[in-house]
Amino acid sequence: MNLNAKTEYACLAMLELAQHYATGEPVQHRLIAERHGIPAQFLVQILHQLKRAGLVNSTRGACGGYQLTQPPQEVTLAELLDVVEGSTDSTTSAANASPLAPVLLEVCAELTAVQRERLEAITLADLLDRAAVEADPMWYI
């Protein structure tokens, strides 16, 4: 699975918001952009898309910014990817003329189902836990 820049930036922004969820304070888009090397104008567009989808709220003003609408434990990667990339239904191609095409399409459908199931099982909180483990390796003596 390859993530395009927009999807990667959306995931990074959501993870940043997830890190700040417990504080209840909004996070300014400039902070997210600087911290993760995301072009600020592009990030604003992404955050607006996430807001329209109901994944984030925004607050105006000097102390404003963005916040998750749900706890990080309730937001899955599948939800996020659906918003940013749209639904990815597999379509058939000209190969349908072949009598072997249905077998190939069946395997592709199985792979898509497994991928979707896995994405539905991973939450923002899970990713933050993984990031914490990678950031703080354990040393054994």
Rank of each mutant, 00 (worst) to 15 (best):
L68A: 02
V27A: 00
H20Y: 04
Q28N: 08
S90A: 07
G54C: 04
L81Q: 01
A40T: 13
L77S: 07
L3W: 09
T7F: 12
I122Q: 09
V56A: 02
E106W: 15
R52E: 09
A10V: 02
E106Y: 15
S58L: 10
G37W: 03
T59C: 08
E79W: 07
P26Q: 10
A10P: 02
H36M: 01
L15Y: 02
G86R: 00
C108I: 15
M14V: 05
Q73S: 11
P99M: 09
T123K: 00
L128E: 09
Q45S: 07
H20L: 06
V56F: 02
L47M: 14
E16A: 09
S98K: 10
W139D: 13
V27E: 00
H20M: 03
Q45K: 13
A18N: 07
V44A: 07
N57I: 09
S93Y: 14
G37E: 05
A135T: 08
L104C: 08
Q73P: 06
A121E: 14
Q67I: 11
Q73D: 09
A121M: 14
A131N: 06
V84D: 00
R35F: 02
R130M: 12
D126V: 07
E25G: 05
G37C: 07
P71D: 04
A135E: 14
S90G: 08
Q115R: 14
Y9M: 07
A95G: 12
V114P: 15
V133M: 06
N4R: 11
E34G: 03
A101E: 13
V83D: 00
A132P: 10
M14T: 05
H29S: 06
P99R: 07
L81K: 00
N4E: 10
Q67H: 05
A101S: 15
T112V: 04
N96C: 13
K6R: 13
E16F: 12
G24M: 11
I141Q: 14
Q73F: 05
Y66R: 00
H29L: 04
A33S: 11
L111C: 09
Q70E: 11
Q45Y: 14
M14K: 01
E120C: 01
E8V: 03
R60M: 06
F42H: 01
L3A: 04
A22Y: 02
A125S: 14
R35M: 01
V133R: 05
H20W: 07
P39N: 03
K51M: 06
A53W: 00
G54V: 10
D136V: 07
E74D: 13
Q67E: 11
H29G: 10
E85S: 09
A94H: 02
H48K: 02
Y9N: 05
T23S: 08
N2R: 02
P39Q: 05
I46E: 01
V44Q: 08
A135M: 11
Q28A: 05
I141N: 15
L55V: 00
A78K: 04
E16N: 07
P39E: 04
R60P: 08
L31H: 10
L80I: 02
A62C: 13
V83H: 05
V27D: 00
C63Y: 12
M14I: 03
A101V: 15
T88A: 11
F42N: 03
D126Q: 06
Y140E: 06
L124P: 01
E79H: 12
R60S: 12
A131V: 03
Y21M: 13
L47A: 09
L100S: 14
D82R: 01
A33Q: 10
I46K: 08
R35T: 01
R30I: 03
R130W: 08
L127D: 05
L105Q: 15
